[in-house]
Amino acid sequence: MKKLLLALILLPIVNSANAQTTPKKTHSGNPVFKGWYADPEAVVFGKKYWIYPTFSAPYEKQVFFDAFSSPDLVNWTKHPRILDTAGVKWAKKAIWAPSIIKKKDQYFLFFGANDIQSDKESGGIGVAVANHPAGPFKDHLGKPLVDKFHNGAQPIDQFVFKDKDGKYYLIYGGWKHCNIALLNDQFTGFSPLKDGSTFKEITPDSYVEGPFMFMRNNKYYFMWSEGGWTGPDYCVAYAIADSPMGPFKRVGKILQQDAKIANGAGHHSVIRNEKTDDWYIVYHRRPLDQTNGNARETCIDKMYFDKDGLIKPVVMTTSGVSANFLR
Rank of each mutant, 00 (worst) to 15 (best):
D115R: 07
F68K: 10
A57K: 12
G46S: 10
D119G: 01
P53T: 04
D72E: 11
A57Q: 12
G135K: 06
I125N: 08
D139Y: 11
D72M: 03
G123R: 07
F159R: 06
V146E: 01
S56C: 12
D119H: 09
G135C: 01
D72F: 02
K48N: 13
S118E: 08
L141Y: 12
F159V: 08
F159P: 00
V127M: 00
K93L: 01
W96D: 00
E60N: 12
A94M: 09
A94L: 02
S99I: 03
Q62M: 15
D157V: 04
D66K: 09
G126W: 12
S69A: 06
E121R: 06
P136V: 10
V146G: 04
A153P: 02
A86L: 11
W76C: 03
H132C: 12
F161K: 11
P144I: 05
F149P: 01
K104Y: 09
D84H: 13
W76S: 01
P80K: 08
A113S: 11
K103V: 13
N131Y: 12
D157P: 02
L109N: 10
D157H: 05
A57C: 01
F55T: 14
I116S: 05
A91R: 04
K89W: 00
R81I: 00
I101D: 04
K143Y: 05
A42I: 04
N114S: 10
Y52Q: 03
N151E: 04
I101C: 06
D72I: 03
I51C: 07
Q106R: 15
K120D: 15
D72L: 02
T77I: 14
K143W: 13
D72G: 04
P58A: 12
V44M: 11
K104I: 09
A67H: 08
K47H: 14
S56G: 14
F161C: 02
K138F: 14
F68H: 13
V160S: 07
D147T: 00
D105L: 14
G142S: 01
N151Q: 05
A130Q: 07
K148Q: 15
P155N: 08
I51W: 07
Q117G: 02
F68E: 03
L109R: 05
T77N: 13
G46R: 09
F137L: 03
A94P: 00
L73W: 05
F149R: 04
P58C: 11
A130S: 14
D119I: 10
S56Y: 06
A67Y: 09
E121Y: 10
G112A: 15
I100G: 00
K61W: 07
A67F: 09
G126D: 07
S70I: 06
L109D: 06
E60D: 14
Y107R: 06
K103R: 14
H132V: 00
N114P: 04
S122C: 00
H132N: 15
P155L: 02
A86F: 03
A57I: 10
L145P: 01
K104V: 14
N131F: 11
V127E: 04
R81T: 07
K138M: 08
K143I: 02
N75R: 01
P80Q: 03
P58Y: 13
I51H: 05
W90A: 08
K148W: 01
T54G: 03
A153L: 02
H150I: 02
I116K: 08
A91S: 10
Q117R: 15
D119L: 11
D84L: 10
P40S: 03
W76A: 00
A86V: 11
K93A: 06
